[in-house]
């Protein structure tokens, strides 16, 4: 499933034109990206949470050369699925 399929879902289910459906879908992802880029978490009940985590700087090694390197502090994104989704995925 890609953005094209999501636009199709919005078009089929809600009756907007393809063009309007595309605008809406793009907007949703733009808002989510802006929120996460600002460091704010995104919590979608029934689906899951996208959480921005601060990682501290640490020492690492280049696995190819064995050389010690500093891994700088950074922000990463993690996803924790909702229990509702996990249950639904494991129901036979």
């Amino acid at each position: 499933m890609t953005k094209v399929d999501i636009i199709q879902v919005v078009h089929d289910k809600l009756g907007y034109s393809k063009k309007d459906s595309a605008t809406i879908v793009e907007s949703v992802f733009d808002i989510m990206k802006e929120t996460l880029a600002s460091g704010e978490d995104l919590k979608i009940s029934g689906f899951g949470n996208l959480v921005v985590k601060e990682k501290k700087a640490r020492k690492g090694r280049n696995p190819q050369t064995g050389e010690e390197i500093e891994i700088s502090k950074r922000r990463v994104l993690t996803f924790k699925s909702s229990q509702v989704l996990r249950r639904a995925m494991n129901r036979e």
Partner: peptide, 8 residues
């Protein structure tokens, strides 16, 4: 998104 999150 990875880059935007990291650079804020």
């Amino acid at each position: 998104l990875k880059e935007r999150v990291n650079s804020g």
